[in-house]
Design a protein around this nucleic acid. Structure first.
Lengths: 131, 131
DNA sequence: TTACCCGATAAAGCTAACTTTAGGGCAAGC
DNA sequence: GCTTGCCCTAAAGTTAGCTTTATCGGGTAA
């Protein structure tokens, strides 16, 4: 099973120019071409794209993902680097979740704050409470 | 207790130009000035900055935070809008946490994948397993 | 055979969120 | 009175991550 760039775009909910941009940036060096230059995506390219998407949503920059892709091309000699990268990225995401939790708590507090203010018809209800 | 822009910058781990940029963008219309134009931050400005930081880390754009700040200036007539905004943002952050969880799971899977590959000395261990 | 998709490239354009640069003011300490 | 360190503004520059535009080629259906 192979896919055209348009099919891949739909699958990943990305635009076709975005995929070509990723290719240009070196994120997809494995994608084959037909004789007239049309990209042909294999199942394995789809799998790699999933990982690229994953690293992207963990906040990794494209130029850093590119380095990982290069490590993939380099074979077993880079296993340690790739392991380290994912361990580092695991810590990064865990940190992000902590931060997001704090953010959520403040937002929930504000929801409650405005709920009470709405019921009272005025924000002053909070000022009075504090004093 | 009041603070200079430099003190606020340290407190929030932001640069001074960034704070001035926020001010220019309309995020800090309440901050007072001395006669010669120097900004003087009150405790209440610090509190508002915390909320701005919170909205920022939930992914809200500066121009949208500005709208919220304007609502704050408009008083009780905008209580409903502000409540709605935080409820919406709560949903946004919950969605982000879901996504981040999926990302974390894939990363953890990859950690394990490379752990096994490292122990075997080659990534081929996974290719063999699949077949 | 002409119209219409789909594919391709190169290059320019865009937006957000800052940062940097260039210029200047005021107050304290040596 | 001069240096140092903080403050100020306006305007230009930067970076990432795309998107848009212009121009082209190939395959198929009416």
């Amino acid at each position: 099973m192979t896919y055209s760039i348009g099919e891949v775009a739909k699958k990943f909910n990305l635009s076709v120019p975005t995929l070509r941009y990723y290719d240009r940036e070196g994120l997809m060096p494995f994608v084959e071409r037909t004789t007239n230059g049309t990209r042909v995506f294999q199942e394995s390219d789809i799998e790699l794209l999933k990982i690229i998407q994953c690293l992207k949503s963990s906040g990794m920059a494209i130029k850093d993902i590119k380095i990982f892709i290069e490590w993939c091309s380099d074979g077993d000699s880079t296993l340690q680097q790739r392991f380290d990268l994912f361990m580092k990225q695991k810590a990064v995401v865990e940190k992000q979740m902590e931060e997001l939790n704090k953010t959520l708590q403040l937002i929930e507090h504000k929801c409650h704050y405005y709920q009470v203010a709405l019921e009272a018809g005025t924000e002053d209800i909070h000022k009075n409470k504090k004093k």
